[in-house]
Design a binder for these strands. Structure first.
Lengths: 171, 171
DNA sequence: CGCTTCTTTCAGAAATTTGTGAAGTTAACG
DNA sequence: CGTTAACTTCACAAATTTCTGAAAGAAGCG
């Protein structure tokens, strides 16, 4: 619609803000549907779609039209699940949030902690219901599945790293 | 605590209702934390821990202390994501909900539909941001990761089926 | 050492989600 | 063909979650 150039002077936000926003919201919607809270999803989308892969709190707030508090909460969530990392620019109180591709792929598959807890719950169930009961047997098999999957996911990521280097070069 | 035998006369609910309930709630809590709504999680847990792997609407309602409406909603959800299947007992209006191990493992990994939509969103982003821009490149790599994963998950399930038969015999 | 700037925390408002009771629908059985 | 039993749908009530504005808390800079 408008001339991107004309807006260019407005600053680094330039590019095609419209297109970026469309992608961010669309992508975030998918994450939300997969169970992730909305703000973290949007923040993550914005980082993915940024040129450098890193944005400051202020930039995120402006681009997404949300309060500093919302940024803070979203970023805390994302850091906790290892989807972004925080960086301090030395000599500035500004913080910078970055998405490292390799890092967040791992986060996606490394539901480690989650899987572990499922396994614990299942193990407990097998014991308390009795390994020789039909129900206990079902739980045991489910447990076996998770244990199997755990190992598979690991080797899958190994293969991905190889595959990735072939196509995209070193990270 | 109490003697299970003494309660035995109470009926089919018998077993160690206490232990079953403890497992169900604990396991359901993990599912909830992974993003699944509460009622579907509890219903699914109850099915997993049942002797036959199948329960009627009434049984579920009694065991979990929830209304028929809640059972209905939970079961609809679970059926939609293919974690349980519905069975009609012929000659009765009763319906029976069953968890097939092999079926719900697939459901877990076959986030197919979800992954597809993520991929669509990413493809769109690559185009609208430009494949030659840094951001576009990042999205493209992410897309490649999902595509890679899609294939891997499939072959992983193949391996699981083999692994399973070795340990548990035919389903 | 105080000022300034950025981030986090907190309490409350708003919105969404979740579960219930009651009425409605379908299907078996006499 | 009516009755009854099971499941579903609907509207509303309750609870939880989510986001904001305001104030407090760090950390560089003069």
């Amino acid at each position: 619609m408008a001339e991107p150039e004309a807006l260019g002077a407005a600053g680094a936000v330039g590019r095609d803000a419209e297109a970026v926003s469309r992608f961010v919201e669309h992508f975030a919607a998918q994450l939300v549907e997969a169970g992730m809270p909305r703000m973290p999803s949007r923040v993550f989308g914005a980082l993915l779609a940024s040129d450098t892969g890193a944005l400051t709190s202020v930039e995120l707030g402006e681009q997404l039209r949300i309060s500093p508090a919302a940024v803070s909460g979203a970023v805390r969530y994302l850091a906790q699940v290892h989807m972004v990392s925080r960086e301090r620019e030395p000599g500035s109180r500004r913080e910078r949030y970055r998405v490292h591709s390799d890092q967040w792929y791992e986060a996606l598959t490394n539901r480690e902690a989650i899987i572990k807890r499922w396994e614990d719950a299942l193990r407990e169930g097998v014991v308390s219901l009795g390994a020789d009961t039909p129900a206990g047997g079902r739980l045991a098999e489910t447990l076996a599945f998770f244990e199997f999957m755990e190992g598979e996911l690991e080797s899958m990521m190994d293969r991905w790293r190889v595959h990735r280097e072939q196509h995209f070069g070193e990270g």
